[in-house]
Simulated scan of single mutants.
Amino acid sequence: MSFFSRIFSQDNPNEAMQPLYQAIVAEGRRLAWYEQGEVPDSIDGRFDMIAAIFSLVVIRLEDEREQAQNLAWLTEIFIRDMDGQIRQIGISDVVVGKHVGRMMGALGGRMGAYREALQGKEDLNEALIRNLYRGNSPGQSAVEFVATKIRLFETQLTELSSADIISGQLPVAAS
């Protein structure tokens, strides 16, 4: 492919990450998170659950240098989806950028908290209460359910190859 063909191509290279993003969203929308885990079934709750799954996938792949571009593309898809979701609920064009910026900041904070918790530097239950439940603990059994499933998902991710993850073959943690 020539230089000009690549520059002016209509192909979107981040589309290769679409199956992974769809798998992340599918996992984040599993009913068990909302029923047994009592994650609020709201716009914010769904964002927080998808952000948790997204974070675990990024944490798994970020140590592999060859995945840097794929992670950038995955993040672009996430941003594009969040932008579309915000517009769909009626937020005006003037403030969409601010909302997306806040969401990306929230994602970064959550990713840091989950990374610390999974490394044993912070309590996972506390990180979940603060980030997934936004400080409103639904009760010990619900938090324990989510913490157990998050740990299971993270463990199963480490057992998968990067190629499997990139292709969207994620484990099913919440069932």
Rank of each mutant, 00 (worst) to 15 (best):
S2P: 07
D11K: 01
N12M: 11
N12P: 02
E15G: 09
E15M: 05
E15P: 00
E15D: 06
A16H: 00
A16D: 01
M17Y: 04
M17T: 03
M17Q: 00
Q18N: 08
Q18F: 08
P19M: 07
P19G: 02
L20K: 06
L20C: 13
V25H: 08
V25P: 03
E27I: 12
E27H: 14
G28E: 13
G28N: 13
R30H: 11
R30G: 06
R30M: 09
L31E: 11
A32G: 11
W33M: 15
Y34P: 09
Q36S: 06
P40V: 15
P40W: 10
D41V: 04
D41R: 14
S42H: 00
S42A: 11
I43G: 12
M49H: 06
M49P: 09
I53P: 10
F54V: 01
S55R: 11
S55W: 14
L56A: 11
L56R: 03
I59P: 15
L61R: 10
R65P: 14
Q67K: 15
Q67G: 07
A68D: 08
A68N: 02
A68E: 10
A68S: 07
Q69K: 03
Q69N: 01
L71S: 06
L71N: 12
L71A: 02
L71E: 02
W73N: 09
I77T: 07
F78P: 04
F78K: 04
I79Y: 13
R80H: 05
R80S: 15
D81I: 00
M82C: 08
Q85I: 12
I86Y: 11
R87P: 05
R87C: 14
I89S: 01
S92F: 08
D93N: 08
D93L: 06
V96C: 15
G97R: 13
V100W: 05
G101P: 15
M104R: 00
M104W: 03
M104H: 03
G105T: 07
G108Y: 11
G108D: 11
A113Y: 05
A113E: 02
Y114W: 11
R115K: 13
R115M: 05
E116Y: 05
A117D: 02
G120Y: 13
D123F: 09
E126R: 02
E126H: 00
A127H: 10
A127W: 13
L128C: 02
I129C: 02
R130C: 12
N131M: 10
L132T: 09
R134N: 06
G135R: 09
G135K: 15
G135Q: 09
N136M: 15
S137A: 07
G139Y: 03
Q140V: 08
Q140W: 12
S141H: 15
A142S: 09
V143L: 04
V143W: 06
V143C: 04
E144I: 04
E144P: 01
V146P: 04
K149G: 12
K149S: 14
K149D: 14
L152Y: 09
L152N: 03
F153C: 04
F153H: 03
T155Q: 03
L157Q: 04
T158N: 03
L160H: 00
S161I: 08
S162V: 04
D164E: 15
D164F: 05
S167K: 00
S167Y: 03
G168W: 01
G168H: 05
Q169W: 04
S175I: 15
